[in-house]
Design a protein around this nucleic acid. Structure first.
Length: 401
DNA sequence: TCTGGGGTCCTAGGACCC
DNA sequence: TCTGGGGTCCTAGGACCC
């Protein structure tokens, strides 16, 4: 049997690198992409020069500004990043049919059995890095290992511009050299729990029995960490997702308890979600609402309908009633969001009975109007929100009940 | 420091059915 | 009147990732 050779590629500080590419005068300077100082928000990506000041992804922008007041703060330009991302992904797609894009800046390649054709993995990886560099100007870090899980960890190991190969048989010693925070999938909460109990290295975790880990982290988390510290997470990016969701949310610049502002914001979000869903030919019968109060606690509400939501107007009416099931007059809201769960291709979801009463007939008509608008917008680039959903994976189709 | 927005996956409890 | 066990669906919330 051929040994699996998996590559994981991760574009370094992607958004910030694109900004430096497009603004050569920013090269060598701390560039911070995200919310702008004075606004609510966090750092999306920052250049390595900014990291030297302690700035990192997800840091509140106010804190980033404090750490790096002379940094170059810019708002994300997703369209531009997606354009460059497409170039890189197209290039990678040529290398093997076993290609899987994970996000705007990440992809897996299954290069098993390619050695005779393309040379040893290390050489292949160097060539890919060089090719991306030449054609786009971007730096990429590559991890090569015998599994998807370890390749992902390896690509992070040598960043930036890294190339890390986990040799066959060297999997455990590779893991032992890592701090706990590099164990992908075990995040802050899990790590805290482990460290509180005195486990600070991967090797220490491996000394624990599965039962002990399950006792500490619960059955799911324990089993995951038990596998992860052995490099045996049976992760496969080609596994099709069971369902999708499409959502939109917004955080107010200032918390608000104003009923009218909340509802008009909700209405805009409903239009956006309905537009993105319809334009992809998708539908869902499970709308959900999300509210985050000023104290950052979050509540959600959802409902499952007999038939898919047909129009943005219907989505809004449903979202409004979910909102009122959670709304506490006077309590200030930080964030409001709406979405659709279990989104599927609309032909499959749409049942025969949709048009069998006057109300749904009206909705059906309105839905047709929306589709016309969608088609016009597609022909008319410059409208927001079309490209993003194209990154969504394929749907598996729904189970018969 | 005061914490975005878009997602996926998992868990746990209740309703309901056989 | 009390009560089994398995399965599925639904809802709410939380961990985690980019």
């Amino acid at each position: 049997m051929i040994r699996a050779v998996i590559f994981h590629l991760d574009l370094d500080a992607f958004f910030a690198s694109v900004e430096q590419l497009d603004h050569p005068e920013w090269a060598g300077h701390p560039v911070i992409v995200g919310a702008l100082p004075g606004h609510r928000g966090v750092v999306s990506t920052c250049s390595y020069e900014a990291r030297a000041f302690g700035v990192r992804s997800a840091l509140p922008i106010s804190k980033a500004y404090e750490l790096c007041p002379n940094g170059i703060f810019v708002a994300p330009r997703m369209r531009r990043y997606q354009e460059l991302s497409r170039q890189v992904m197209e290039l990678l797609r040529q290398l093997t049919p076993r290609f899987c894009q994970m996000s705007v800046d990440e992809a897996y390649l299954d290069m098993s059995g390619m050695e005779n054709l393309a040379g040893p993995p290390e050489l292949q990886a160097k060539q890919i890095k060089q090719q991306i560099r030449t054609q786009t100007g971007l730096k990429v870090s590559v991890g090569v290992a015998s599994s998807w899980y370890l390749a992902k960890i390896a690509s992070d190991f040598g960043k930036p511009d890294g190339l890390c190969l986990v040799p066959e048989g060297g999997e455990l010693s590779f893991l032992d050299a890592l701090p706990l925070k590099k164990l992908h999938g075990a995040g802050g909460k899990t790590r805290q729990r482990l460290e509180e109990n005195g486990f600070t290295t991967v090797a220490a975790l491996r000394a624990l029995s599965r039962e002990a880990l399950e006792l500490l982290l619960g059955p799911g988390g324990g089993a995951f960490v038990w596998k992860a510290c052995r490099g045996e997470v049976d992760y496969n990016p080609f596994r099709e997702a069971r369902s999708h969701s499409i959502s939109a949310e917004t955080t107010f610049e200032e918390d608000t308890a104003d009923h009218e502002i909340l509802l008009s914001t909700l209405q805009g979000l409903c239009q956006e979600v309905a537009f993105r869903t319809t334009s992809e030919g998708l539908a869902s019968r499970t709308p959900h609402l999300k509210l985050r109060w000023s104290d950052f606690t979050t509540v959600t509400a959802q409902v499952t309908l007999e038939q898919p939501v047909a129009t943005s107007g219907q989505l809004y009416r449903l979202a409004e009633s979910l909102f009122h099931s959670r709304w506490k007059p006077g309590r200030t809201v930080r964030l409001i969001g709406v979405g659709l769960n279990e989104v599927r291709p609309s032909e499959k979801t749409r049942q025969e009975g949709l048009f069998d009463d006057a109300l749904t007939a009206t909705l059906g008509k309105q839905s047709k109007i929306e589709k016309v608008i969608v088609e016009r917008m597609k022909r008319n680039p410059g409208q927001p929100g079309i490209t993003k959903a194209s990154l969504l994976g394929k749907d598996r189709g729904h189970q018969e009940k």
